[in-house]
Structures are given as C-alpha cells and as structure tokens.
C-alpha cells in the first residue's frame, strides 16, 4: 500500500473506534490525543485493528510512532509495502 492508502486505512480505523468524532479536519501533524478523545484503551484498538487486518505486530516500544497520523503512516509504510490496498 502507498502512504495515502495507509492513511485512509488508519482514518477508517479511527472512525470505527471513535464514532462520535468528526475526522474531516484531522491534522496529520498534531497528536491524535490532542485533537480527539482517545485514551489508552482506544489507542490499543488501533494496534488491534492493524493486527487483525494485516497481521502487523507492533511491539510496545514502537507505540511512540503512532502519535500522529503522519508518524503512523511513516511507521506503517515499510511494514505494509507488500500489502494490497483494501478494495
């Protein structure tokens, strides 16, 4: 998947785990937690969804890479480079 497709995957995950949030103006450079209600259990949902969807195992020491949309996409790009994008 290309970075833009990965961004959409993460956006779709956020929409499922935070269904009350308006994500249309999400700023990729600002921490998720600073622009939406997202606690540690929600954050683990992001990790879990990626694990379920793409068998991506993200070790706890790498969680710091999932702070913003930009950092998340950057971190996932090499891990998902050989994965087909969702239909």
């Amino acid at each position: 998947m290309a970075p833009e497709q990965i961004r959409q995957v993460v956006l779709d995950i956020l929409a499922r785990i935070a269904p009350d949030e308006d994500l249309s103006d999400l700023d990729d450079a600002i921490a998720f937690r600073d622009q939406m209600e997202l606690d540690s259990m929600d954050f683990l949902d992001i990790v879990m969804e990626l694990r379920k969807m793409y068998r991506v195992q993200i070790p706890e020491e790498d969680y710091e890479n999932l702070v913003t949309m930009a950092s998340t996409v950057s971190y996932l790009t090499p891990l998902l480079k050989d994965v087909d994008s969702p239909a």
């Binding site: 259990m41 683990l44 879990m48 694990r51 379920k52 195992q57």
Partner: peptide, 15 residues
C-alpha cells in the same frame, strides 16, 4: 476468524 489466535483477543474483554 483468526484461527483462535489469542493475540487478537480484545483488551476490552476484562472491563
């Protein structure tokens, strides 16, 4: 759905 892989067991289960 994941071959009974317990790593996808939800962290929400206990609460």
């Amino acid at each position: 759905k994941f071959g009974y892989d317990t790593s996808v067991w939800s962290h929400h289960h206990n609460p």
